[in-house]
Design a protein around this nucleic acid. Structure first.
Length: 645
DNA sequence: GCCGTTTTCGGCCCGACTGTTTTCAGTCG
């Protein structure tokens, strides 16, 4: 939780419900972490984590669930959590022991969890024995050699903590998807070329296309006889900054930018946004920096099992394992082994009894499931869907026929209208929407009404030219209007009504981040009420690894937009495809879909190259269960024109 | 703290690696 303080969310002034879904999920997550640090039973901790995750993805109204008592029927909510949450949501008071955990646990102990190799147990011991309660006091204790003397600790772990503190200071723990994928693909290619390597494939959160990547997982198939030479060759590859560990089957590394053949550069984002998140510092961190990588060496027969296992997620794997157990099988990274054959054998020793599978598909078949595409493996309903042949037919990039939020030189874009249109045609799109910034956003050279309308005339001229030439391409004319005080838009109504559409976005982040969730949510609703508002742009304003978004109840916003759509007035939510944003979050896409709120994937391109960011938007959309029919991007120019009228 | 159609008590996914040990605990994924 970048930048977020570790405090219990404050109750809304009016209630019930006094807390939103997000706030409850956040509180449960924090209590789980604090319980861990206080030495609580690991299964108790897990039930808090499970409840947090389950409630965070819930689609029903939490206030109603509490009022009706249905809260207690949810899987993972029992007597204890049920009554704690009923009190919190119904009366606006968190349980006393949750409050005590927050007041009594030093903030520094939570930060210490970020140090690699250091977990809650040893943090607690150091706290009790040495009074260590922050990264600063930990460094002092390590430097005067008092940690090495503790029982169960030694000189090596003391040094590792010092290294870890150094690492934490220099680099962030996660990398954006685009950067992680670049590292991952470069690493995969280099390993594939090593003699003796039969297969090498990127797994982990990169393969699941999460918006940020913690570390890279590479699964490599190799004969036992080649294991040693391949392992040695991997350790000699360029781009390895450090070797954290190297066993028979697992190599743990830190990669840096020398893994790339060419100069490594990161994508572009608006200058005004970059300034707000630390400018040069952010760019340096992202363009330099390192990423952790784990390599697993296995035989070809075991490869599909290892690939599936390390593609994860943890929650998906747990559910898969449980499904195997229900069928008298034991699933691990080495195979799918009948319990009666496995006996006491563990790991590779039991692998020879495994059911065979030439690929992941056959593993899923053994468990009576359709193959689940990696993006969906988050245990958010995919196993149930795979069981009943109801997995979605996910959108692919070739379904995209255009996008609606793009900039030109009229505001802060680098390319002219003509250049943008030309580029869109070249990548095979049938239409392109231009939505330059509005006047209030001075730093982005927001265009005034006169220039905006002149742009509209130009677009009309080009459109009629293309139509007469029989070219299946057209431009749509919109604006990215800043959302002003009270949810107002940034142009008079008579200007906005002359456009094809309006993307309404928040840019005054400082103001919005200084306010509570309820105020922000209501202000966004007032903006959605405006008849000209067609699309809600980058709905939370987050910058991945840069800044959190402002607080807003997106579930409520989507439900509010759903009402308009039900009544025949189209209100769409943007999935901003910039890898800096990926906002709407993938977790909310399915919620928008089930509420029949259309989604538009927008690259927010500020240059020709920026259009290519659509790829990351499609990845996020797939992760969010979206099919081509759920997004406006798949419409023909004619159908979109009809819809916008 | 949650859960249950062989269960209201005794389980809760499973294995590798590291550093500390002389058989194991902590951490990670």
């Amino acid at each position: 939780m970048a930048g977020g303080a570790f405090v219990l969310p404050k109750a809304r002034p009016k209630g019930p419900p006094y807390f939103s879904r997000n706030q409850v999920a956040q509180a449960l997550h924090q209590v789980a972490v604090l319980l861990e640090l206080n030495g609580a039973n690991v299964f108790r901790v897990r039930s808090y984590q499970n409840a947090s995750r389950m409630l965070g993805g819930l689609t029903q109204d939490l206030g109603e669930l509490v009022a009706s008592g249905e809260l207690f029927e949810l899987k993972g909510i029992g007597k204890g959590l049920g009554s704690a949450l009923s009190q919190a949501i119904g009366e606006g008071r968190w349980p006393d022991d949750w409050i005590a955990l927050h007041t009594d646990t030093p903030e520094g102990m939570i930060e210490m969890l970020g140090i690699p190799g250091l977990g809650p147990k040893r943090i607690k011991i150091m706290n009790q024995e040495l009074g260590v309660d922050s990264i600063t006091t930990l460094r002092e204790a390590a430097e005067d050699d008092s940690i090495a003397g503790l029982k169960g600790f030694g000189a090596k772990s003391q040094q590792r903590m010092l290294d870890g503190i150094e690492l934490l200071a220099r680099f962030r723990s996660r990398r954006r998807l685009d950067i992680g994928l670049k590292y991952g693909e470069a690493f995969e290619q280099r390993i594939s070329k090593i003699p003796g390597v039969q297969k090498a494939q990127l797994a982990g959160s990169a393969r699941r296309r999460k918006d940020t990547i913690g570390d890279l997982d590479l699964v490599v198939a190799v004969d036992d006889s080649d294991k040693e030479s391949v392992s040695n060759a991997i350790l000699q590859l360029p781009g390895i900054a450090d070797i954290k560990g190297a066993g028979d089957s697992k190599i743990s590394l830190i990669l840096d930018t020398s893994i790339f053949d060419e100069n490594f550069s990161i994508g572009h984002i608006d200058t005004n946004v970059l300034d707000a998140i630390g400018g040069d510092d952010y760019e340096q961190l992202e363009a330099g920096g390192t990423i952790d990588a784990q390599v697993r060496l296995v035989s070809l027969e075991v490869f599909p099992f290892t690939l599936a296992y390390f593609t994860g997620s943890k929650e998906h794997n747990i559910a898969m394992r449980q499904r195997a157990i229900d069928r008298g099988l034991r699933l691990s990274e080495f195979g799918l082994i009948p319990e009666k054959d496995a006996g006491d054998l563990k790991g590779m020793a039991a692998a020879k009894y495994s059911l065979s599978a030439i690929d992941e598909n056959e593993i899923y078949q053994h468990l009576d499931l359709d193959w689940v595409t990696p993006e969906l493996r988050e245990d958010t309903g995919e196993i149930l869907a795979a069981q009943s042949e109801e997995l979605p037919n996910l959108i692919v990039q070739s379904d995209i026929r255009g996008s609606l939020h793009n900039h030109t030189t009229l505001s802060d874009g680098e390319a002219s209208l003509e250049q943008m249109a030309d580029a869109a045609r070249k990548i095979g799109w049938n239409w392109l929407g231009l939505a330059d910034h509005s006047p209030s956003l001075k730093i982005a050279n927001g265009a005034n009404a006169e220039d905006l309308l002149a742009q509209g005339e130009l677009i009309k001229r080009y459109n009629s030219e293309w139509a007469s030439e029989g070219v299946d391409f057209r431009l749509f004319h919109g604006v990215e209007s800043d959302i002003l005080e009270g949810g107002k838009l940034d142009h008079p109504d008579d200007i906005l009504s002359q456009l094809d559409y309006t993307v309404a976005s928040v840019h005054a982040m400082n103001k919005w981040k200084g306010r509570d969730e309820q105020t922000n949510t209501e202000e966004l609703m007032r903006c959605i009420d405006h008849p000209s508002t067609t699309i809600l742009g980058h709905p939370t304003g987050r910058i991945l690894q840069g800044r959190d978004g402002y607080e807003v109840d997106m579930f409520a916003i989507i439900e509010y937009m759903a009402e308009y759509n039900k009544n025949g007035e189209m209100k769409a939510v943007e999935l901003n495809a910039s890898p800096y944003r990926l906002d709407l979050d993938w977790r909310l896409c399915k919620f928008a879909k089930t509420n029949n709120v259309p989604i538009i994937i927008n690259p927010d391109a500020h240059s020709i190259r920026g259009l290519a960011d659509i790829a990351y938007g499609v990845m996020a959309a797939r992760k969010g269960w979206l099919e081509s029919g759920d997004v406006l991007n798949s419409l023909s120019g004619d159908d979109l024109a009809t819809l916008l009228k």
